[in-house]
Amino acid sequence: MPESNYWRKPFDADKVKSPDGTVYVIKDRCKGCGFCVEFCPRGVLVLSTEFNRKGYHPPEVIHPDRCVNCDLCERICPEFAIYCLNQEEIIELAP
């Protein structure tokens, strides 16, 4: 999916900073459904060509800078194999 080019630019776009997120993929838990790749609104992910232990293709982060920590991949993943965290959550969950 391309970047959101059908929205107008907000008036306060220069003042408000969009949040940053980091995507984590638990590769061996993934069953390669492709929901996260299909529905990511920022086009961060793509299905990789490599196989995981079960023979599925897990997603791969190709544009980590585009992630805005919207949590959609985390919520739409039926396998609980992908999640995105902001910097505070990373410090909280992985001390």
């Binding site: 039926p78 609980f80 959550e89 992985a94």
Partner: peptide, 30 residues
């Protein structure tokens, strides 16, 4: 790698679950 944020509420030691690939039940559990 940090823990999955839902690991406090779901039994992550039982994952991967038995549901098929592309099944929607896991989404509702999440």
């Amino acid at each position: 790698i940090p823990e999955h944020p839902k690991s406090l509420l779901l039994r992550m030691d039982r994952m991967p679950h038995i549901w098929c690939s592309r099944c929607g039940i896991g989404i509702t559990v999440g």
